[in-house]
Design a protein around this nucleic acid. Structure first.
Lengths: 370, 370
DNA sequence: GTGAAAGCGCTAACAC
DNA sequence: GTGTTAGCGCTTTCAC
């Protein structure tokens, strides 16, 4: 059986309060006493029982992260970023996956999210305005990640879906392409990632005076490589001419890339291709993939920050906050080099402004980083 | 403030024991009483305080998973598999990353691993026989994953590193290649993944009568795409002729692939390439990547199973178990089609035996799956 | 500086 | 079938 405070206090010949004082770095303990206690702790290999501590303190120092699925590279990298940010604040992270299914998303949110954690980071996927109440009812402190969906119920750190997607589309338009495919749409969706990114795509087309054509929008329910490949194949079968592909995330783009190459298209010469997320793999595909860096690390950092504030507050006094994290356009080999007329690299305010961010100005055709 | 058993019992006009009985599905509760209690629970939106429950019961129903890093696709997929297996048994998973640094691996193992969890799954990376005691001393039930390193201190679910790597090397040898590069070695290492996979590579060469040549073994400290690219570039600079690459994991292979293609090599015509892990990306690279499927899902399932057994047992009565999970050779486009003389698809016993697994017999040049 | 004691919310042994 | 109660290991108030 594990040692308790009592065991330690008995061995050290002090009361449990003194042991507790030593453990919690209470300064007013005589040094000789402290040494005796520390020796006893070492001897018994004592570790505090965290269940007892959290029962008493009301804190677990664990937060949960609710995401669709870890095997999606974007979420794995997000989880990694969240865990680093959490660790810096002494928090552990309990990850819950809910898959791509609305019912299971609701069920995880309702039944598992608040279990023995101080707070929740929730990367919304399938819920929308109609679920506003479900979200609002969660009593554990919670911060939403990624989408900009719910008007107000909770703190919210969003990526700039519309602006990022618009910038991506503008990049291929700036390269002179006019027949631009969009891959990954969710028909009917307005405020999810797919809806927002489609909106950005349409904005860019409109701004460039290119007519929108329904046939150039290919749906994909989930956003895995297989879906990108399938969508690309489906479009090729229509026989329509095209010269660029805007994929709503990188894995879709990489799946599409494979099919394009099989079919004999050269990227970027025949078809320009751009993704969204800036996952590690995009640095090493052949060709490397142009993409939008949504600011994953900053999303994670600010979300943890916000969550910690919520946890530390007694009640829901402050209004929910909404933070939009800046994005960057990352120009790599899969889009033809463009040196002007591209949206700037930072945030919505700069979209359409002059100048290029560091990564976009550099040599447009960079090899894999060393 | 959240409602407690007392609040519920007061509202329902029963004792807390009765409420507890209802919650824990104790059968001998009068139905009318049960209804009253359930109504009170719903009204107060009561959820049990899990800290209190686990203080009392000694169980948290959380296990931790210690891995190097989530952004490595293999570990993300492993974590996914572990979480699914855990969920089936009502367990949540708390993930801790320790990076690629030995000191932090030790620190995570010693300081964070047993915090408020019932058991630990630990994917060993940098520790070896010299750390046997550190491992043995962990008092929380623990199962080791992946490597076959520690002789005995704990239950252990391993992948077949030597046999898998041998089979991978045999696959390219069977295709007639003789100048076979190995990428990802850790000089001096014997019992880590790198050491074991190098051993398998050497076994295969020896069995085929190909002389081992130090110059064909390229080290790579970590196993990311960047390392594979760097290693490949370093080897190309030697100017040595070669016709095949055995990479010790898939990301190394994909990094190397990129460099090979930049340098104008055709894969598999000029250079055959095979990885290890069977991550999702290998289905969609151009060409698709031949690899070894180490049985990730089964490793996760059996490890969780073993861990639950350990948790349920009172003491360390049973001897530590060691389970070696079967692997499969997955032949895709990056190695030339081979229809005979390849190791069979299942496990060490079958290595070198006749016959081919389903995936290896199929059309050697398959496109991305639909 | 240190000790005694209450109580966090729950489970389970025992009583009725 | 249902109620009473002890106690899991900790933190913290209050005395001394």
């Amino acid at each position: 059986m594990a040692a308790t405070l009592h065991d330690v206090s008995r061995l050290a010949g002090v009361s449990i309060k003194t042991v507790s004082n030593v453990i919690n770095d209470y300064p007013y303990v005589r040094d000789s006493t402290r040494q005796r206690v520390l020796a006893a702790i070492a001897e018994l290999d004592y570790t505090p029982n965290l269940s007892a501590r959290s029962l008493r303190s009301g804190r677990t120092n664990v937060i949960s992260l609710l995401i669709p699925e870890l095997r999606n590279a974007y979420f794995a990298e997000l989880a990694d970023s969240v865990m680093r940010a959490a660790r810096e604040r002494g928090l552990s992270v309990l990850i819950e996956q809910f898959g791509n299914d609305r019912a299971s998303e609701l069920s995880v949110l309702r039944n598992r999210s608040g279990r023995m954690v101080d707070g929740i980071l929730y990367s919304v996927l399938g819920l929308d305005e109609s679920d506003r109440d479900t979200i609002a009812e969660v009593s554990t402190p919670m911060v939403l990640l990624g989408e900009r969906i719910f008007n107000g119920p909770k703190d919210h750190v969003t990526m700039q879906n519309v602006e990022g997607s618009r910038a991506a589309t503008e990049l291929v338009l700036a390269g002179g392409r006019r027949r631009v495919l969009a891959i990954g749409a969710h028909p009917g969706e307005v405020i999810g990632s797919a809806g927002l990114r489609l909106a950005g795509y349409r904005e860019a087309l409109a701004a460039a005076g290119v007519a929108f054509d329904e046939r150039f929008v290919v749906p994909a329910g989930t956003w895995h490589r297989a879906d990108g490949a399938r969508a690309m194949r489906a479009f090729l079968e229509t026989g329509l001419a095209f010269d660029a592909v805007v994929a709503f995330n990188d894995t879709l783009a990489l799946g599409a890339l494979r099919v394009l190459q099989e079919a004999g298209y050269r990227v970027p010469e025949d078809v320009a291709l751009i993704g969204f997320d800036d996952i590690d793999e995009t640095h090493y595909s052949m060709p490397t993939l142009s993409t939008i860096d949504p600011g994953r690390d900053e999303i994670a950092r600010r979300a943890v920050e916000l969550l910690v504030r919520r946890i530390d507050e007694d009640a829901d006094t402050r209004e929910p906050e909404e933070i939009a994290v800046p994005f960057r356009v990352i120009q790599r080999e899969s889009t033809p080099p463009v040196l002007t007329g591209v949206p700037a690299d930072r945030g919505a305010a700069a979209v359409g402004a002059a100048g290029l961010g560091a990564e976009a100005v550099g040599p447009a055709l960079v090899g894999p980083e060393a």
